[in-house]
Design a binder for these strands. Structure first.
Length: 314
RNA sequence: GCACAGGUGGGUGAGUGGUUAAAGCCGGCAGACUGUAAAUCUGCUCCUCCUUGCGAGGUACGAAGGUUCGAAUCCUUCCCUGUGCA
C-alpha cells in the first residue's frame, strides 16, 4: 500500500524568508512551488509583493503567481479550487508540491476547506450598503441577529465585512450560517501535510521588514504604483494593500516620501504580527526559530522533510 | 538680554482648582477570523498587590518651593524649547 504523497507547506510572517526556504527545498527534493499569498496572485503587482524574481523562478516550477487581472478579484474559495487543481497536476508529475505563503485564510481554505456556502452576490451587497446608509451603523448587526442569533453573537457589530458575508449566506441559502457550518468543511485529501513554520525573533524580523520596505521604495514601488494607477484607476484592489496604499497616498501628494515609507514599514510590521496570531492556531506546525534563508534553518527543514518522505522498500 | 508662546503618560495632544491615573489619536502587546483577508474587527496598555473589581495602595503632568481641605490646573523662583525684538 502506497502512502499518500507529501505536501510541504512553508508558512510564516512576511519577511521571514519563506521564498528562500521554499526554493532550497524545491531544489533539494525536486519540488514545485505553489503560491499561497493573496496579493502575489495578481499580475503587475511586482515590487510591493516581494514575489520571487525571474532568476528565483528559474530554480523551480512556480504556480499561482500572476493569474488574476490587476482590476479583477479572487476569493478564498476560488483560490482553493485553483490550488487544488494545481496540486493534482503536480501529483501526477510525481514531484513534490510546496505551498508557500502568508495568507492564513487561503491556506486554511486550501487544506481544510470552506463550508459549502454560496458565492458572493454583488447586488445583495450593494443593497445592504444602501440600507446601512439609511438605517445607521447598527443595522447590519440587528439584521444578522434576527436571521441567525448565534452568528450575531459571534460577529462584532463593527465588523462590517464579516457581518455582510454572514447575512449574504443566510439570505442566499435561506438557512442560518451557523447551521450550515455544521455540514462541515471539505478538507484536501490525497496528501500528507508537513507544515513548516518560520518564527524568527521578533525584533530581527521587524528590522528586516523595515529594510525590505525601504528597498521597495528605492527600487521603484512608487513608479510601479503610479503606472498601475494610470492604467487601472484606484479600483484595482491590491492598491489598498501593504505598501501600495502608502505609495498611492504619496503619488497623490497627501503625504511625503518619508511619511509614506514609515507608514508602509509600520503596516508590514503590523501585518506580520497578525499573521503570527493566525498561524499560532494552525494545527501541526513544525516551528523553526529563525529566517528561511539561514543555512541552519534550511538544514533542519530538509531533515524534517526527509523524515516525512514516503518510505521506499528495497 | 528683553517680550510673547510653551514644557502633560512610549509619541502626539486634550484637559485650566475636586467623580483625572489624566480624553482622543498613534504606537506597543494580546486576541478574533469559514469566499475581495496584505482586508476587517475586539481587548489591554504607569507600578505593586489581591478575592481581576465601576478593587486596594503607591508614584505621576520640566524642577524646587508656596497658596488651598484639595493643584496637571493658581503664585514665586529656577531650568529648558520655539517665535519676535535687540
Amino acid at each position: 500500500m502506497l502512502q499518500d504523497p507529501l505536501l510541504v507547506v512553508v508558512l510564516g510572517p512576511t519577511g521571514s524568508g519563506k521564498t528562500a526556504l521554499s526554493l532550497a527545498l524545491a531544489e533539494r527534493f525536486r519540488g514545485e512551488i505553489v503560491n499561497c499569498d493573496s496579493v502575489a496572485l495578481y499580475r503587475e503587482f511586482e515590487i510591493g509583493t516581494a514575489k520571487p524574481t525571474a532568476p528565483e523562478r528559474a530554480r523551480a516550477p512556480h504556480h499561482l503567481f500572476d493569474f488574476v487581472e490587476p482590476s479583477g478579484y479572487i476569493t478564498a474559495g476560488e483560490y482553493a479550487r485553483r490550488a487544488r487543481q494545481t496540486l493534482e497536476e503536480i501529483k501526477s508529475r510525481r514531484t513534490m508540491p510546496i505551498v508557500v505563503g502568508g495568507t492564513g485564510l487561503y491556506l486554511r481554505a486550501l487544506l481544510e476547506g470552506l463550508f459549502p456556502g454560496p458565492q458572493r452576490s454583488e447586488e445583495l451587497r450593494e443593497r445592504l450598503h444602501q440600507r446601512t446608509e439609511q438605517k445607521g451603523s447598527g443595522y447590519l448587526h440587528r439584521l444578522l441577529s434576527r436571521l441567525d442569533p448565534a452568528a450575531g453573537a459571534r460577529i462584532h457589530a463593527n465588523d462590517v465585512p464579516k457581518l455582510i458575508r454572514a447575512i449574504e449566506i443566510c439570505l442566499a441559502s435561506r438557512q442560518k450560517m451557523t447551521e450550515m457550518w455544521k455540514s462541515g468543511r471539505d478538507p484536501l485529501q490525497g496528501f500528507r501535510f508537513l507544515r513548516l513554520g518560520l518564527d524568527p525573533e521578533r525584533n530581527a524580523l521587524y528590522e528586516r521588514i523595515n529594510q525590505r520596505a525601504q528597498r521597495m521604495f528605492d527600487c521603484g514601488l512608487v513608479q510601479e504604483t503610479q503606472r498601475l494607477l494610470d492604467k487601472y484607476g484606484d479600483t484595482a484592489r491590491p492598491l489598498t494593500s501593504l505598501g501600495y496604499k502608502q505609495a498611492v497616498q504619496l503619488v497623490r501628494g497627501e503625504i511625503d516620501r518619508k511619511t509614506a515609507l514609515q507608514a508602509a514599514q509600520q503596516a508590514h510590521r503590523n501585518y506580520a504580527k497578525r499573521q503570527m496570531t493566525w498561524f499560532r492556531r494552525e494545527p501541526d506546525v513544525v516551528w523553526l526559530a529563525g529566517f528561511g534563508d539561514e543555512a541552519e534553518i534550511q538544514k533542519r527543514a530538509v531533515a524534517h522533510v526527509q523524515r516525512h518522505m514516503p518510505t521506499f522498500k528495497n
